[in-house]
């Protein structure tokens, strides 16, 4: 992410000469000292809470994860750690479930992210018109965002039920046989993706809408003079105009997708949730981590999966940066 850190102009207030001049005296000197201490120290005190909490609850655990991953640790005896070197890693590398979960994470990620962002783009375009009741449409689009994973997944699981679900009933009106959404791999992944899409499309649409409203109107006018149709204007003015926001949402959705957990867990109901279906057909890396740690009670192996997830994120970011750079060079 290219985030600018432009700072305010140089004569920043912190360097302003201390104010109290004139009469001397002990009290004065002490307060000057205090003042100086305040100016020097306060900034650090202000930013300290963030770094302390981050170090204690994010950074340290991340590092410690790698240490745990080199051990055999069981949930019921957390203080007994047995050194196993890289065994957990080689076992993970040889484990079909890992590659399967990795692939599922990627396919569900694509299935949920691509339609979600495309639909968000369309929705934002519609919301960008001069509208009656625009607040209603915006709030309506954002409502799913208020629904927790738990509630959303419960509802969708029921809509996708094989024997009496609403979706199969609707399909049956068109002569489609009942689909076994849970047992069929692609059906299950589609159903899970639809939960993600439902929850996040409106949110992303609002981000796009905000960016669209920042596009100067004269660009459209210029394009119109050049004879561009509305569709061409959309492609040539709107989309490039919100490019950075699009990149931003892709990054966020990707982070979300690599950690997908609640939706498939609840969709599977009971034991099938943790394993992501009887055939692991929708087990994601997040679920695999949970299965290893909190069903098989092997914390070392769970930590190994966590590291694999972290590596995946890094790879994704590197790829994204490379693609971005190549694209920028071409443009």
């Amino acid at each position: 992410m290219a985030i600018s850190t432009s700072t305010p102009s140089d004569g920043a207030p912190g360097t302003a000469p201390s104010a109290g001049t004139g009469t001397g005296g002990d009290g004065q000197r002490r307060s000057t000292l205090l003042h100086r201490l305040d100016v020097r120290g306060a900034p650090y005190a202000f930013v300290a809470p963030f770094f302390v909490v981050f170090a204690a609850f994010s950074f340290y655990p991340l590092i410690y994860t790698s240490w745990i991953s080199l051990h055999r640790v069981e949930l019921s005896t957390l203080n007994l750690m047995e050194w196993v070197g890289f065994d957990n890693y080689t076992a993970l590398w040889d484990d079909d479930r890992f590659w399967n979960a990795l692939l599922n994470t990627i396919t569900i990620g694509v299935l949920s992210t691509v339609p979600q962002l495309l639909m968000a783009l369309g929705l934002a375009h519609l919301l960008n018109y001069r509208l009656r009741g625009s607040t209603f449409f915006r709030v309506a689009a954002l409502t799913p965002y208020a629904t927790s994973v738990g509630a959303a997944a419960l509802v969708f699981t029921m809509l996708f039920e094989r024997d009496f679900g609403m979706i199969n009933w609707m399909l049956s009106l068109f002569g489609v046989e009942n689909i076994d959404w849970e047992n069929n791999k692609w059906a299950a992944q589609t159903a899970i993706s639809s939960i993600v899409i439902w929850r996040w499309t409106g949110y992303n649409a609002l981000l796009y809408l905000a960016a669209m409203q920042a596009i100067p109107r004269d660009r459209y006018e210029a394009a119109a003079i050049d004879g561009a149709s509305r569709w061409q204007q959309f492609l040539m003015v709107t989309v490039p105009g919100i490019r950075s926001t699009i990149v931003f949402t892709i990054v966020l959705s990707t982070i979300g997708a690599t950690q997908l957990f609640g939706e498939p867990l609840i969709f599977g109901q009971g034991p099938n949730g943790i394993t992501g279906g009887a055939d692991n057909q929708y087990q994601t890396l997040g679920l695999l981590l949970y299965e290893e740690g909190w069903k098989n009670y092997q914390m070392g192996r769970a930590a190994t999966v966590a590291w694999a997830m972290f590596l995946l994120l890094i790879v994704v970011f590197v790829v994204q940066r490379v693609v971005q750079r190549v694209a920028a060079r071409k443009a």
């Binding site: 076994d180 047992n183 034991p271 099938n272 009887a278 055939d279 057909q281 069903k295 098989n296």
Partner: peptide, 28 residues
């Protein structure tokens, strides 16, 4: 139970399902 679901609902052969089951038990 999951292994039998593989046969029942996912059209896996009993041999395949047994193999998967065996592996999973090993992990568990």
């Amino acid at each position: 139970s999951q292994g039998l679901t593989l046969i029942e609902a996912q059209n896996k052969s009993p041999e395949q399902a047994w193999k998967t089951t065996d592996k999973r038990i090993g992990k568990a």
